[in-house]
């Protein structure tokens, strides 16, 4: 597996797109600091970008990489290698290289501007961790989609739709149902709804680190109590991990049955 991971990783490390992605974050990091020197404020701006962009990039790169590495995959399939090894290796290779672009791209400007000396270090680490989680989740989902659709255009379309659904439409339905069922206690419902969308869950986790937790407190103690405690934190991280593991598991299952 490590060998496949390594090859996928180096293959990507030489692709132009990885550099563009890396340079984008690098530039973003520097611009944010150039505009406002306050680290904590930059972290808030980054939140908005990260929870939308990392899933989108993960989805697009995931699907693109899956289809464009089809030949590579077929070459590997004829070799004495386990299918699981091949797909998990490629999956990890892509996810790691994307995460690395994110971490280095944002990390370098932050380190240069002295984030280690500021209290925002934890928020920032959290932000990168969440960004990493989202990358792994959406790459897994898009690999799964790639494996399910032989038609590249169809697969790409479905992947983008999935992103659109989780990033926008889901929240729309979420909001509408809360407005409609206003008369019922909603905190538990809202809590459950966030768990079923990794983007929402990530957003809440970062918001709670960003002093806006006060606002969540406004709706009654449920959110605050849940997310504010170690228990809630562990649950949230577990759910995010499940969001990686479950699609990966389906990915492996699908890969084992697929014809090439």
């Amino acid at each position: 597996m490590l060998k496949i991971l390594k090859y996928s990783f180096f293959d990507l490390a030489r692709s132009r797109w990885s550099y563009i992605y890396f340079l984008f974050y690098l530039l973003l990091g520097f611009i944010l600091f150039f505009l406002n020197h306050e680290v904590s404020k930059a972290v808030i701006t980054l939140l908005n970008i990260i929870i939308i962009l990392t899933p989108l990039i993960g989805t697009i790169f995931g699907v693109m990489y899956y289809y464009s590495s089809k030949e590579f995959t077929e070459l590997l399939l004829a070799q004495p290698l386990k299918r699981t090894t091949i797909f998990i290796g490629q999956y990890l290779g892509l996810s790691l290289s994307l995460s690395l672009s994110l971490i280095l791209g944002l990390g370098i400007p932050f380190v240069l501007y002295g984030v280690f000396l500021s209290s925002a270090i934890w928020n920032f680490t959290m932000l990168l961790l969440i960004g990493g989680f989202l990358t792994f989740i959406f790459v897994a989902l898009s690999f799964l989609i790639g494996l399910s659709f032989n038609d590249k255009i169809k697969g790409f379309g479905v992947a983008i739709l999935l992103w659109l659904f989780l990033a926008v439409i889901y929240d729309g339905i979420f909001l509408l149902s809360m407005i409609l069922f206003d008369d019922y206690p909603l905190d538990k419902f809202a809590l459950a709804m966030t768990m079923f969308n990794p983007i929402d869950l990530s957003r809440i986790l970062i918001l709670l680190k960003l002093d806006i937790s006060a606002l969540l407190g406004y709706t009654g103690a449920v959110f605050q109590k849940f997310f504010g405690t170690n228990f809630g934190m562990i649950i949230s991280m577990t759910v995010l991990s499940l969001w990686i593991l479950v699609p990966s598991w389906f990915m492996v299952k699908k890969a084992l049955k697929k014809d090439f």
């Binding site: 293959d11 030489r14 692709s15 030949e71 590579f72 077929e74 070459l75 004829a78």
Partner: peptide
């Protein structure tokens, strides 16, 4: 294999 497609990079 029938079609000699390899990783481009």
């Amino acid at each position: 294999p029938q079609i000699a497609n390899f990783p481009q990079n």
